[in-house]
């Protein structure tokens, strides 16, 4: 599985959405991506990629696309 597939799967499984919806998803665009969903998604992301995000990055993680940029800082190319 590629990193992009793993990354997409985190969104599809956490929020119960399709990969197509995930690709353009932004925070609070769906009810499931609220404060609670955000923590759950970040927790899975940290487990899957074996990283620990800085709090600024957790706060800045506002969309699927933004998340990809943030992961680069942790040497995770998506």
């Amino acid at each position: 599985m590629t990193n992009l597939e793993k990354y997409t799967q985190i969104f599809t499984e956490t929020f119960g959405i399709s990969a197509e919806v995930a690709a353009s998803l932004e925070y609070q665009q769906i009810q499931e991506w609220d404060s609670v969903g955000h923590m759950s998604m970040i927790a899975t992301l940290e487990n899957v990629f074996e990283i620990m995000l800085d709090t600024d990055d957790i706060i800045d993680f506002s969309s699927f696309e933004k998340g990809k940029e943030i992961l680069k800082k942790y040497d995770v190319e998506v």
Binding site: M39, I59, F61, S62
Partner: peptide
């Protein structure tokens, strides 16, 4: 400014 930061809890 922080409404989309996931810190509501």
């Amino acid at each position: 400014n922080y409404a989309k930061a996931g810190i509501g809890f």
